[in-house]
Every structure is written in C-alpha cells, then in structure tokens.
Simulated assay, not measured.
Amino acid sequence: MTTDSELRRLLVTGGAGFIGSNFVRYWRNTHPRDRVVVLDALTYAGNRANLADLEGKDNFRFVEGDIRDRALIETLLQENAIDTIAHFAAESHVDRSILSPDAFIQTNVVGSFALLNAFRTIWEERGKPQHNRFLHVSTDEVYGSLNPDDPPFSETTPYAPNSPYSASKAGSDHLARAYHHTYGLPTIITNCSNNYGPYHFPEKLIPLTCINILLGKVLPVYGDGQNIRDWLYVEDHCRALDAVIHRGQPGETYNIGGNNEVKNIDLVRLLCDLMDELAPDLPTRPAQDLITFVKDRPGHDRRYAINATKIKTELGWTPQETVERGLRRTIEWYLAHLDWWKPLLSQDYQDYYRKVYRA
C-alpha cells in the first residue's frame, strides 16, 4: 500500500494532448491517491474533452495556461505543493514545423526554459527535496536518421536533428540536461519512438489513415513509403514513464521504444486490412485502393529505431503490445468514438491538410 510520504503531487503540462491525456488517465487509475494538476494552453491539438471523464474528481485540477508564463507556473507549484513535473507540452508535428517553425521554438524551447526556471526556484526555496522530479518527455527524432543497417538509437547516440521540430526538442533536451549538471535540478529525460493509441489528433499518420478510410478519402503516403518508424503503444509509454518517475535516476536519459519497426507503406496496408475487417459499410473496399503516393516531405528522415536496453535492465520495463494488437485496439477506439474525432475536422484542419498533401 502507498504511504502518505510516497504520494506524489504532479503538474502535467500538455495534459490535454494525446500522450499527456493518456498519461493523466493512466496515472489516475494506477495511483488514485496522488494529486494531478493539468496545465494546457488548449491549442489546436489540446482538447479538454480528452479529460472530460476526470472533471470534478477528487485530486484532479485543470488549468488553462501557457508554459511560458513563469509566474503562473510558480503559483501552481506553490498552491498545489507540486513535487513532480511531467512535461509533455510541445508542438510535435514535423509537417507543421516545416510550414511554421516559430511556434515550435516558442513552446518547445522558450516554454521549457520557463518551466525549468520556475521549478528550480521553488525547488531551491524548499531546500532541494530529493524526491522531487522534473520529467522531460522528448522524442527519438533528436538523434536524426538511421541507414538500413545502422544500430538503433541508444542514449549515447549523438544528436543530429533534421527538422525544426526535432531541433526544438533537442534544444529543450539540452536545457533539461544542463539544469541538472549546473544546478543539480532532478531532471530526467526520456526519448520515445512514435506513439499511437486513443485520443490521437487526426493529422498524425495512424488516425489520419483510419479516418480517411471511413470517409472514403485518399490515403497519402510520402515518397516511396519505405521510411521506417518504431511504433510504441501509448499505454506502454505511460507505464515506462511511471517507472522512470519512481525508479529513474536524476540526470539520466532513458530511451523508450516499442520494438516494432515498420515501413510506412506496410503500416498503412495493415491499417487498411484491419479496417476492412472491423469497419462495416466502408465507402471504398478494399481500403488499399485508396493508397496514393504523394511528394515526399522535405528532409524526411529515413529510419528511426530505439535500443531500449537501458530502461529494461535498470528499471524493468518492456513494451507489452505488439503493433498488430495495438493497432486493433486503436481502430476499435476510433470506431467507437466518432463523436470525439468528427468535430476536430474543422475548416482550419482541412486547410492545413490541403497545404501539406495538396489534396
């Protein structure tokens, strides 16, 4: 049983986004006595409806606000006696970073800087408690691109970001690391592979494919479709972050991967086959007839792969979901939650979609 001294009081930034909201729900189910405060600016990918089932519950609070607002952060840390920050808030879509990189620098770099400064101030005022944690959730994209025969990314792989998004995340990683080594701040960095699962905003590959199949729209695949990604079911990611918060060492980095390397075209074909099986009355069947190759993304990284040996050996975490089982669970969720994703297909989203895919 968890004792009062072991209870945590978390501030979850970006907690209304995809991974953040899954983490909040996971944490509430796994550690129901812990206090969880969500801070989210509710930009296009932040959706308060993602947390609707938690509104009004004990030990849960939602605050709309910007992580760049240091005064707000310090107030929240003080008022709620926060001892743990789980930092998810980020602009995260590569295509958007290519079209408009400004927001990525502001949120991912300037915002992370403000958050680290606020946490440092309160942490030092409290006498630098050892159990405090600042979890900085990052991406494998900071490592750049792999060739087909290259070994997977490890925690010692040199950084080589290739997009404005990955460069901005690399910058925030370096800040988190520097604040530990300079000030002793108890920061931990995690670099994860591509997540998927419930509450994923429709612009990303898996929900975009599922929704376009349901709408009978083309399925855009960049270039030759041979780009490889490692896919991590979001619930597996949440379990890994739990292990990092409770057993990870400050100043360390942990890579989190799903052990599921899949070519983009193979992933889209698998989604098509599962949709043919699970979704009745599709406008186009077989769904693979909708696959359309489009002009490649500028600077498109060829392959990502994660070596997750460190988190397995040191913290005892391994992913539980295969990509086939995880995709099935994800599709079933989207089929059951049309009321969640249909309102997200706004005019702004349609305009963005046309810019990116010329469709």
Rank of each mutant, 00 (worst) to 15 (best):
A114F: 07
D150M: 06
D102I: 00
N22E: 13
P129M: 12
G20Q: 12
H136S: 10
L219T: 15
H93L: 14
T2Y: 01
G111V: 04
L344F: 11
N59C: 00
Y196C: 02
A89L: 11
Y143M: 14
D242E: 14
Q350R: 15
R285D: 00
Y196R: 08
L278S: 00
Y349D: 12
I306Y: 07
A308P: 04
L39Y: 09
S21N: 10
A178H: 06
Q347M: 12
L215T: 01
N47D: 15
D173H: 06
L175E: 07
D348C: 02
P164N: 04
R68P: 05
E277C: 08
P286I: 10
L232M: 13
F293A: 03
H337Q: 11
D150Y: 12
D273T: 00
W27Y: 03
N80S: 00
E155K: 03
L241K: 05
D40W: 13
A118W: 02
D149L: 13
R177D: 14
Y349N: 12
V244M: 13
L215I: 01
A279Q: 02
T313F: 01
I19W: 02
E6T: 09
R48V: 11
G251S: 06
T13H: 06
G316T: 05
T75F: 03
Y165T: 06
V109I: 15
H87G: 03
T43R: 14
R61F: 09
K355Y: 01
P319S: 11
A45H: 04
D266S: 15
G15T: 05
L344D: 11
G171K: 12
S145E: 12
F62M: 04
A170Y: 03
V323N: 08
W341A: 12
I291D: 07
G248R: 01
A114C: 09
C238D: 10
N195R: 01
I213M: 07
Y222L: 04
G216A: 06
D66H: 09
T30K: 09
H180N: 14
C210R: 00
V12E: 04
V37E: 04
Y222H: 11
I67S: 04
L232Y: 12
T75E: 14
L338Q: 10
F18V: 03
S166G: 05
A81W: 01
G258E: 05
D34F: 07
A170Q: 08
Y334N: 06
V110A: 04
N195P: 06
F119G: 05
P198D: 05
C210A: 15
S97N: 06
H31I: 03
F113K: 04
H181N: 08
D296W: 02
P101V: 02
P250R: 05
L270C: 07
E6F: 02
I122P: 05
A41C: 11
S112V: 05
Q226K: 08
T121R: 11
V268S: 09
T84E: 13
K342N: 10
P129E: 07
D173A: 10
R229W: 09
L135M: 14
G223Q: 13
T84G: 11
E6H: 10
G257K: 07
V37F: 05
E79S: 15
Y183K: 13
G197K: 03
G56Y: 01
D281T: 01
